[in-house]
């Protein structure tokens, strides 16, 4: 299967090939892989692809998952409007 055709992060359209190549070029954490490729940084906040991004790191580094969550969570866990955060329409 052509890994370039396989989209892992639907929000940012990041392919498996891009993730594997990045993880191999920069042996890194799931967080760094996310920041380098934008996988998991789209509108859904990584809810759909985070497990897959973790698996790419496991595959490349050979590390088995530990009790700590590999790809951390930050608030807000939903996309918000500036209005909700206190902004005002002019």
């Amino acid at each position: 299967m052509d890994a370039h055709q396989l989209i892992v992060c639907r929000c940012e359209e990041v392919s498996l090939a891009e993730l594997m190549e990045t993880a191999e070029a920069y042996p890194c954490s799931a967080r760094e892989l996310k920041l380098r490729t934008r996988a998991g940084m789209g509108c859904c906040g990584g809810r759909t692809c985070r497990v897959l991004v973790d698996q790419v790191i496991e595959k490349v580094t050979g590390q088995t998952p530990s009790h700590s969550v590999p790809l951390g969570y930050q608030p807000p866990v939903r996309p918000l409007s500036f209005q909700l955060m206190g902004g005002r329409n002019k």
């Binding site: 929000c11 359209e13 789209g42 859904c44 759909t48 996309p79 409007s81």
Partner: peptide, 26 residues
């Protein structure tokens, strides 16, 4: 990318079905 999208999870997790409603986005 301009690629077409529709319903994916149907319970609010994936945001693939986001539309504008009466001018409000997402």
């Amino acid at each position: 990318k301009g690629t077409p999208r529709g319903i994916y999870c149907n319970i609010g997790h994936c945001y693939e079905c986001r539309v504008h409603v009466d001018g409000v986005p997402t």
